[in-house]
Design a protein around this nucleic acid. Sequence first.
DNA 1: AATGAATGAGCGTTCATTCAT
DNA 2: TATGAATGAACGCTCATTCAT
Lengths: 216, 216, 216, 216
Amino acid sequence: MIKDKIKTSKPQEKSQRARKSEVTRKRILDASAELFGEQGYFATTLRQIAKRAKIDAGSIYYYFDSKDEILDEVMEIGIRAVADAVKEAVDALPDTTTNREKLEAATKAHLNTLLKFNAYTSANIAIFAQVSSEAQNRNRKLRQDYAAYWHELFDAAQKSGEISPTTDLSLVRLFLLGSINWSMQWYDPKKKSIDELALSFCEMMFDGISGANTEC
Amino acid sequence: MIKDKIKTSKPQEKSQRARKSEVTRKRILDASAELFGEQGYFATTLRQIAKRAKIDAGSIYYYFDSKDEILDEVMEIGIRAVADAVKEAVDALPDTTTNREKLEAATKAHLNTLLKFNAYTSANIAIFAQVSSEAQNRNRKLRQDYAAYWHELFDAAQKSGEISPTTDLSLVRLFLLGSINWSMQWYDPKKKSIDELALSFCEMMFDGISGANTEC
Amino acid sequence: MIKDKIKTSKPQEKSQRARKSEVTRKRILDASAELFGEQGYFATTLRQIAKRAKIDAGSIYYYFDSKDEILDEVMEIGIRAVADAVKEAVDALPDTTTNREKLEAATKAHLNTLLKFNAYTSANIAIFAQVSSEAQNRNRKLRQDYAAYWHELFDAAQKSGEISPTTDLSLVRLFLLGSINWSMQWYDPKKKSIDELALSFCEMMFDGISGANTEC
Amino acid sequence: MIKDKIKTSKPQEKSQRARKSEVTRKRILDASAELFGEQGYFATTLRQIAKRAKIDAGSIYYYFDSKDEILDEVMEIGIRAVADAVKEAVDALPDTTTNREKLEAATKAHLNTLLKFNAYTSANIAIFAQVSSEAQNRNRKLRQDYAAYWHELFDAAQKSGEISPTTDLSLVRLFLLGSINWSMQWYDPKKKSIDELALSFCEMMFDGISGANTEC
DNA sequence: AATGAATGAGCGTTCATTCAT
DNA sequence: TATGAATGAACGCTCATTCAT
């Protein structure tokens, strides 16, 4: 809708109007992401979204064609946000970084985005399973791309010998990301920092918890 | 409601009426558990439940006071079901069984209940995060008991030296159960059996994936 | 919906419930027909219908799946009502009746149904042109049947010599029924009785208004 | 609104502004007339009108105070258009023309305006019965003037003996114009030309369809 | 033990309208 | 001269719930 019009205006000098419009649009999306994450998609009403975005419920339809369209955009932003955060974190590391360290950085970034910084990502992870399969499918490509990026990280670690050659990389990825995503349901910032948690996760995954290890 | 009446009747010779009533009641709960698991709590309507239970929507209120009461009972049954299955599986093991083997058996039992046998458990795990905090609280005690049971298993393993003494047992429990529960979102029975999956999870947790291990 | 259930119940002894249900259903249809005729389809709201039918707006959906379904049923009843009234009127005539007299009787019956007796017929004639083409199509078959019946009447009159052999019967039918239907927009019962009006219409159609006729 | 301003500006040299304004205003009216005719008044939204007129929905309010005001103007233009067309057609006839021929010319002109040339007239005839009685009343005076003009034509024909002295002229006028207006609902240009149709109508009205006529 | 009828609050959505720019 | 943003009332419709039978 409006989005298109804004993008076609000259980039260097956006009118005040266009800027205000963008701000309102973002307020709606922000409110939606928060509420979807807190209550789920179906339990969230457009009137709640409108109230939190400080506009009238009818006005939402100036920016979006339907509640479903909001959902799609929230979910898309959510996946892009983690993916970007993770890639950025990994890219920022020096060349000398080991692959295990890269995976640790990725885990930290994912966990921080999910638990602290990004309501869109929380919403995506929280509600994906409960929305219609159509809505899921619209988000699937981005999720697969993100999974593929993690696979590369794991693959590099295996190739360099940091992960045992017999390890099923797909399974271990699902194992790690499952744990991470599930932490949404129990994480309490008062008890442990997010970065510590991420490192603990990686340590468990890499070294295991077996008491026999120490016998080496 | 009816539930109470049934319990006060003599246990050995239930009238046919009472038995039929129980059957209908169970049909409603079964239908609810299935639908909650498939679609979520809010997306499921009482009419859908009634249809699947083959009764009239109004009749549900003969057995339950509200949709929320159905939710509570489904969730309770769900947690009890996994807890029972896990305990039974562990209890059935011979005395010579190692603690690691007990944890493996527990994992298999949890995973089988969740992914194959019990719609109530699937529903519980799938919808817990999306229902009201009141409903969550009503289920919390049972969940804590179940967590405590797992903790015992981990604790015994640590005491026996099978788990390193520095391991944070609470964290590792959340790590393992998070992975397991999350598998609901991606598990495909055509690719791997549930028991194999359970063993893979335990192996990763105990032994880790590090390539350095092999250097011992 | 409900309609089906009622029909499957034993015809000889309808329960009080079923009868009450039928009454409510009819109240909704009656109210709809009246309002559609008075205000048009789009200007009529379900809340107005509910108010006139003395039920709650939501209750309408116990009997009908949508506003459109009400429309369909109102339109169907409307056409059937005129068709039945016209056929009955013609059938009631003795064998000695001329074809012109039959056409006069048909005209009277149509006009009375439209202007006096049947809100459904008024609604049908008034709103047909303004509803969606889908709704029109659903009503089309019945309208064609009704038109065919009129055609038979005209055809018989032409065959018997009461109508000139060169007359285009389709056109004259449209001419007559157009005039009749249009009378909805101007007819005032205080000025002329419906039966008189019908006869005037037929006289004009048969004999024309030309002053030259009298010269015969 | 703007209309007034335009009229007060000097007629011979309208500013370009004023002219552009008039053009836009006409675009809105044209779009409205078309849509009202196609879909009815209530089914037509201001956004549809705006889209067809290639302006923004809000801009309509620069030219009109309300949707109802557009309706009034469309309806007024519609009646004036037929009235003018009919009068022009009759005035163009030579002095030797018979009154019947004048009525035929009037019928042709009305029918052509309605079915071919003028969206405003189509809209007026199509939607008059469905708009509020207030809106109808605002259009009534013009309609009565137009009816009076037809009455004059009929009256002259009766006075000259071309119409039988016993004919109820008001009724015959309603009869003819009803048929004509109703033809909107069934006329198909592929089957018969408008002029032929008009002549057929007049022939039926004047000469009747009776087979007995030929016996003269 | 169960149903059919009905309710009423609230849902997602639409639409005529307003107004600052 | 015209627009983009926003409003708020009302729309068709859904749903958990009630209740007489």
